[in-house]
Design a protein around this nucleic acid. Structure first.
Lengths: 131, 131
DNA sequence: GTGTTTGCAAACAATTTGCAGAATT
DNA sequence: AATTCTGCAAATTGTTTGCAAACAC
Protein backbone atom coordinates (compact mmCIF):
# COMPACT_ATOMS: atom_id res chain seq x y z
CA UNK A 1 0.00 0.00 0.00
CA UNK A 2 2.65 2.47 -0.97
CA UNK A 3 1.77 5.89 -2.25
CA UNK A 4 2.47 6.74 -5.83
CA UNK A 5 2.72 10.19 -7.28
CA UNK A 6 -0.26 11.71 -9.04
CA UNK A 7 -0.66 15.06 -10.69
CA UNK A 8 -4.31 15.11 -9.76
CA UNK A 9 -3.59 14.67 -6.07
CA UNK A 10 -0.91 17.36 -6.18
CA UNK A 11 -3.30 19.71 -7.84
CA UNK A 12 -5.99 19.07 -5.24
CA UNK A 13 -3.66 19.70 -2.36
CA UNK A 14 -2.20 22.76 -4.02
CA UNK A 15 -5.65 24.20 -4.57
CA UNK A 16 -6.59 23.66 -0.93
CA UNK A 17 -3.40 25.29 0.25
CA UNK A 18 -4.26 28.43 -1.64
CA UNK A 19 -7.62 28.82 0.04
CA UNK A 20 -8.70 29.86 3.47
CA UNK A 21 -12.44 29.26 2.96
CA UNK A 22 -12.61 25.51 3.59
CA UNK A 23 -13.97 24.29 0.26
CA UNK A 24 -16.23 21.28 -0.22
CA UNK A 25 -15.39 18.35 -2.48
CA UNK A 26 -17.52 19.88 -5.17
CA UNK A 27 -15.75 23.22 -5.03
CA UNK A 28 -12.44 21.41 -5.27
CA UNK A 29 -13.76 19.50 -8.26
CA UNK A 30 -14.96 22.63 -10.02
CA UNK A 31 -11.61 24.33 -9.59
CA UNK A 32 -9.21 21.49 -10.23
CA UNK A 33 -11.15 20.83 -13.40
CA UNK A 34 -9.73 24.04 -14.79
CA UNK A 35 -6.33 22.38 -14.81
CA UNK A 36 -7.50 18.79 -15.38
CA UNK A 37 -10.66 18.98 -17.46
CA UNK A 38 -11.08 15.20 -17.35
CA UNK A 39 -10.69 14.69 -13.62
CA UNK A 40 -13.67 12.92 -12.11
CA UNK A 41 -15.51 13.74 -8.94
CA UNK A 42 -14.71 10.25 -7.73
CA UNK A 43 -11.00 10.96 -7.97
CA UNK A 44 -11.45 14.17 -6.04
CA UNK A 45 -13.30 12.35 -3.27
CA UNK A 46 -10.76 9.53 -3.22
CA UNK A 47 -7.85 11.91 -2.91
CA UNK A 48 -9.48 14.13 -0.33
CA UNK A 49 -10.19 11.07 1.77
CA UNK A 50 -6.67 9.77 1.25
CA UNK A 51 -5.05 13.09 2.13
CA UNK A 52 -7.24 13.39 5.20
CA UNK A 53 -6.36 9.85 6.25
CA UNK A 54 -2.62 10.47 6.09
CA UNK A 55 -3.10 13.76 7.87
CA UNK A 56 -2.04 16.13 5.12
CA UNK A 57 -5.37 17.89 5.15
CA UNK A 58 -8.26 18.02 7.59
CA UNK A 59 -11.86 17.09 6.96
CA UNK A 60 -14.22 19.38 8.82
CA UNK A 61 -17.83 18.53 9.39
CA UNK A 62 -19.61 21.73 10.00
CA UNK A 63 -23.06 20.27 10.26
CA UNK A 64 -24.44 21.48 6.96
CA UNK A 65 -24.43 18.00 5.54
CA UNK A 66 -21.40 18.58 3.35
CA UNK A 67 -17.82 17.87 4.19
CA UNK A 68 -15.39 20.75 4.05
CA UNK A 69 -11.64 20.46 3.72
CA UNK A 70 -8.80 22.45 5.15
CA UNK A 71 -5.11 22.44 4.33
CA UNK A 72 -4.35 23.71 7.81
CA UNK A 73 -4.11 20.69 10.06
CA UNK A 74 -3.05 22.36 13.27
CA UNK A 75 -5.99 22.60 15.67
CA UNK A 76 -8.00 25.77 15.44
CA UNK A 77 -11.63 26.80 15.67
CA UNK A 78 -14.16 27.71 13.02
CA UNK A 79 -16.94 30.17 12.57
CA UNK A 80 -19.97 29.29 10.46
CA UNK A 81 -22.23 31.97 9.08
CA UNK A 82 -25.87 30.97 9.39
CA UNK A 83 -26.74 33.36 6.60
CA UNK A 84 -24.35 32.49 3.80
CA UNK A 85 -22.93 29.22 5.11
CA UNK A 86 -19.36 30.39 4.85
CA UNK A 87 -16.75 28.75 7.05
CA UNK A 88 -13.87 30.80 8.36
CA UNK A 89 -11.11 30.39 10.89
CA UNK A 90 -11.89 31.76 14.29
CA UNK A 91 -9.14 32.75 16.62
CA UNK A 92 -9.76 32.28 20.32
CA UNK A 93 -7.00 33.06 22.76
CA UNK A 94 -6.19 30.77 25.68
CA UNK A 95 -8.47 27.88 25.07
CA UNK A 96 -5.97 25.13 25.53
CA UNK A 97 -6.92 24.07 29.01
CA UNK A 98 -10.34 23.16 27.72
CA UNK A 99 -9.89 19.42 27.78
CA UNK A 100 -8.32 19.37 31.21
CA UNK A 101 -11.08 21.35 32.82
CA UNK A 102 -13.66 19.27 31.08
CA UNK A 103 -12.17 15.89 31.84
CA UNK A 104 -12.01 16.54 35.57
CA UNK A 105 -14.44 13.84 36.56
CA UNK A 106 -15.04 12.05 33.28
CA UNK A 107 -14.81 8.32 33.48
CA UNK A 108 -14.01 7.65 29.84
CA UNK A 109 -11.00 8.77 27.86
CA UNK A 110 -11.12 12.29 26.47
CA UNK A 111 -9.10 12.72 23.31
CA UNK A 112 -10.07 16.18 22.17
CA UNK A 113 -12.83 18.52 21.23
CA UNK A 114 -14.27 20.47 18.38
CA UNK A 115 -15.84 23.90 18.63
CA UNK A 116 -18.04 25.64 16.11
CA UNK A 117 -19.02 29.23 16.60
CA UNK A 118 -21.96 30.42 14.62
CA UNK A 119 -23.76 33.64 13.88
CA UNK A 120 -23.65 36.21 11.13
CA UNK A 121 -20.36 36.90 9.43
CA UNK A 122 -18.87 40.33 8.90
CA UNK A 123 -19.94 40.38 5.28
CA UNK A 124 -23.53 39.40 5.93
CA UNK A 125 -23.80 42.00 8.70
CA UNK A 126 -22.93 44.67 6.18
CA UNK A 127 -25.47 43.46 3.68
CA UNK A 128 -28.52 43.91 5.90
CA UNK A 129 -30.05 46.76 3.94
CA UNK A 130 -30.02 45.14 0.53
CA UNK A 131 -32.59 42.70 -0.93
CA UNK B 1 -49.88 26.77 8.25
CA UNK B 2 -51.49 25.79 11.51
CA UNK B 3 -50.47 22.71 13.36
CA UNK B 4 -52.87 19.84 13.68
CA UNK B 5 -52.66 17.08 16.19
CA UNK B 6 -51.19 13.75 15.18
CA UNK B 7 -50.75 10.57 17.14
CA UNK B 8 -47.62 9.78 15.21
CA UNK B 9 -45.98 13.07 16.11
CA UNK B 10 -46.92 12.65 19.76
CA UNK B 11 -45.44 9.20 19.77
CA UNK B 12 -42.20 10.41 18.23
CA UNK B 13 -41.79 13.19 20.75
CA UNK B 14 -42.71 10.91 23.61
CA UNK B 15 -40.15 8.37 22.53
CA UNK B 16 -37.42 11.00 22.34
CA UNK B 17 -38.29 12.29 25.78
CA UNK B 18 -37.74 8.87 27.26
CA UNK B 19 -34.21 8.59 25.90
CA UNK B 20 -30.95 10.19 26.79
CA UNK B 21 -28.92 8.64 23.98
CA UNK B 22 -29.77 11.01 21.12
CA UNK B 23 -31.34 8.60 18.63
CA UNK B 24 -31.17 8.92 14.86
CA UNK B 25 -34.23 9.11 12.61
CA UNK B 26 -33.89 5.42 11.91
CA UNK B 27 -33.81 4.51 15.59
CA UNK B 28 -36.91 6.59 16.14
CA UNK B 29 -38.54 4.83 13.22
CA UNK B 30 -37.68 1.37 14.54
CA UNK B 31 -39.12 2.15 17.93
CA UNK B 32 -42.21 4.13 17.05
CA UNK B 33 -43.09 1.32 14.67
CA UNK B 34 -43.76 -0.86 17.69
CA UNK B 35 -46.74 1.37 18.44
CA UNK B 36 -47.58 2.38 14.85
CA UNK B 37 -46.60 -0.53 12.64
CA UNK B 38 -47.62 1.36 9.51
CA UNK B 39 -45.74 4.56 10.16
CA UNK B 40 -43.37 5.45 7.37
CA UNK B 41 -39.82 6.66 7.59
CA UNK B 42 -40.89 9.73 5.65
CA UNK B 43 -43.35 10.66 8.37
CA UNK B 44 -40.68 10.24 10.99
CA UNK B 45 -38.34 12.54 9.10
CA UNK B 46 -41.08 15.08 8.47
CA UNK B 47 -42.05 15.22 12.12
CA UNK B 48 -38.51 15.32 13.42
CA UNK B 49 -37.81 18.24 11.10
CA UNK B 50 -41.04 19.95 12.12
CA UNK B 51 -40.41 19.49 15.83
CA UNK B 52 -36.87 20.76 15.42
CA UNK B 53 -38.10 23.77 13.47
CA UNK B 54 -40.57 24.81 16.15
CA UNK B 55 -37.93 24.21 18.79
CA UNK B 56 -39.53 21.33 20.63
CA UNK B 57 -36.55 19.09 20.00
CA UNK B 58 -32.99 19.69 18.89
CA UNK B 59 -31.24 18.28 15.87
CA UNK B 60 -27.62 17.51 16.61
CA UNK B 61 -25.10 16.96 13.87
CA UNK B 62 -22.28 15.03 15.36
CA UNK B 63 -20.32 14.61 12.17
CA UNK B 64 -20.98 10.92 11.58
CA UNK B 65 -23.16 11.67 8.60
CA UNK B 66 -26.40 10.94 10.43
CA UNK B 67 -28.58 13.40 12.26
CA UNK B 68 -29.28 12.74 15.91
CA UNK B 69 -32.18 14.17 17.86
CA UNK B 70 -32.52 15.32 21.42
CA UNK B 71 -35.61 16.16 23.45
CA UNK B 72 -33.48 18.40 25.65
CA UNK B 73 -33.33 21.77 23.98
CA UNK B 74 -31.48 23.73 26.63
CA UNK B 75 -27.85 24.23 25.60
CA UNK B 76 -25.45 21.57 26.73
CA UNK B 77 -22.42 19.78 25.36
CA UNK B 78 -21.99 16.33 23.92
CA UNK B 79 -19.44 13.58 24.00
CA UNK B 80 -19.00 11.29 21.01
CA UNK B 81 -17.30 7.94 21.37
CA UNK B 82 -14.98 7.28 18.44
CA UNK B 83 -15.23 3.57 19.12
CA UNK B 84 -18.95 2.87 19.31
CA UNK B 85 -20.33 6.13 17.98
CA UNK B 86 -22.51 6.73 21.01
CA UNK B 87 -23.54 10.27 21.82
CA UNK B 88 -23.95 11.30 25.43
CA UNK B 89 -24.43 14.50 27.34
CA UNK B 90 -21.27 16.01 28.68
CA UNK B 91 -21.36 18.31 31.62
CA UNK B 92 -18.78 21.07 31.74
CA UNK B 93 -18.85 23.56 34.58
CA UNK B 94 -18.47 27.28 33.99
CA UNK B 95 -18.40 27.52 30.27
CA UNK B 96 -20.84 30.33 29.90
CA UNK B 97 -18.42 33.15 29.32
CA UNK B 98 -17.19 31.35 26.24
CA UNK B 99 -18.91 33.53 23.71
CA UNK B 100 -17.91 36.76 25.39
CA UNK B 101 -14.26 35.86 25.54
CA UNK B 102 -14.38 34.67 21.99
CA UNK B 103 -16.23 37.61 20.53
CA UNK B 104 -13.80 40.15 21.95
CA UNK B 105 -12.58 41.44 18.62
CA UNK B 106 -14.87 39.69 16.20
CA UNK B 107 -16.35 41.91 13.56
CA UNK B 108 -19.39 39.79 12.79
CA UNK B 109 -22.24 38.83 15.07
CA UNK B 110 -21.63 35.84 17.32
CA UNK B 111 -24.81 33.98 18.21
CA UNK B 112 -23.49 30.92 19.93
CA UNK B 113 -21.29 27.91 19.76
CA UNK B 114 -21.32 24.16 19.68
CA UNK B 115 -18.79 21.89 21.32
CA UNK B 116 -18.19 18.24 20.70
CA UNK B 117 -15.85 16.31 22.91
CA UNK B 118 -14.61 13.03 21.54
CA UNK B 119 -12.65 10.06 22.74
CA UNK B 120 -13.47 6.66 24.15
CA UNK B 121 -16.54 6.30 26.33
CA UNK B 122 -16.60 4.65 29.71
CA UNK B 123 -18.13 1.50 28.32
CA UNK B 124 -15.62 1.11 25.51
CA UNK B 125 -12.74 1.69 27.92
CA UNK B 126 -13.91 -1.30 29.94
CA UNK B 127 -14.25 -3.52 26.93
CA UNK B 128 -10.64 -3.33 25.80
CA UNK B 129 -9.77 -6.93 26.60
CA UNK B 130 -12.58 -8.61 24.70
CA UNK B 131 -12.72 -9.45 20.95
C1' DG C 1 6.07 -5.90 -14.71
C1' DT C 2 3.70 -4.94 -10.40
C1' DG C 3 0.77 -2.17 -8.05
C1' DT C 4 -1.41 2.28 -7.50
C1' DT C 5 -4.39 5.75 -9.61
C1' DT C 6 -7.74 7.23 -12.85
C1' DG C 7 -12.33 8.05 -15.27
C1' DC C 8 -16.63 6.46 -15.69
C1' DA C 9 -20.85 4.69 -14.24
C1' DA C 10 -23.36 2.32 -11.08
C1' DA C 11 -24.27 1.74 -6.15
C1' DC C 12 -25.22 3.60 -1.67
C1' DA C 13 -27.02 5.93 2.43
C1' DA C 14 -29.52 9.57 4.46
C1' DT C 15 -32.99 12.60 3.69
C1' DT C 16 -36.66 15.04 1.03
C1' DT C 17 -40.65 15.39 -1.79
C1' DG C 18 -45.09 14.62 -4.79
C1' DC C 19 -49.30 12.72 -4.52
C1' DA C 20 -53.84 10.76 -3.33
C1' DG C 21 -56.20 9.36 0.55
C1' DA C 22 -56.98 9.55 5.75
C1' DA C 23 -57.27 12.18 9.91
C1' DT C 24 -57.97 16.53 12.57
C1' DT C 25 -60.31 20.81 13.42
C1' DA D 1 -65.64 21.52 4.38
C1' DA D 2 -61.03 23.00 4.73
C1' DT D 3 -56.59 21.86 5.63
C1' DT D 4 -53.02 19.32 7.64
C1' DC D 5 -50.95 14.82 8.04
C1' DT D 6 -49.95 10.18 6.49
C1' DG D 7 -48.04 6.21 3.74
C1' DC D 8 -45.88 5.03 -0.17
C1' DA D 9 -42.69 5.38 -3.75
C1' DA D 10 -39.80 8.04 -6.44
C1' DA D 11 -36.39 11.71 -6.38
C1' DT D 12 -32.33 14.16 -4.56
C1' DT D 13 -27.92 14.88 -2.51
C1' DG D 14 -23.42 13.70 -0.98
C1' DT D 15 -20.26 10.12 -1.12
C1' DT D 16 -18.36 5.47 -2.14
C1' DT D 17 -17.16 1.63 -5.01
C1' DG D 18 -16.19 -1.86 -9.01
C1' DC D 19 -13.91 -2.17 -13.06
C1' DA D 20 -10.76 -1.93 -17.04
C1' DA D 21 -7.43 1.09 -18.79
C1' DA D 22 -3.58 4.46 -17.76
C1' DC D 23 0.20 5.70 -15.11
C1' DA D 24 4.20 5.59 -11.71
C1' DC D 25 7.96 3.24 -9.95
Amino acid sequence: MNLKHSKQRDSIKEFLEGRKDHPTADMVYMNVRKTFPNISLGTVYRNLTLLADIGEIARIRVGDGVDHFDATTTPHYHFICKECGSVSDFDVPDMISFDEIASADFKGQLEGHTVYFYGKCENCCKTVLSS
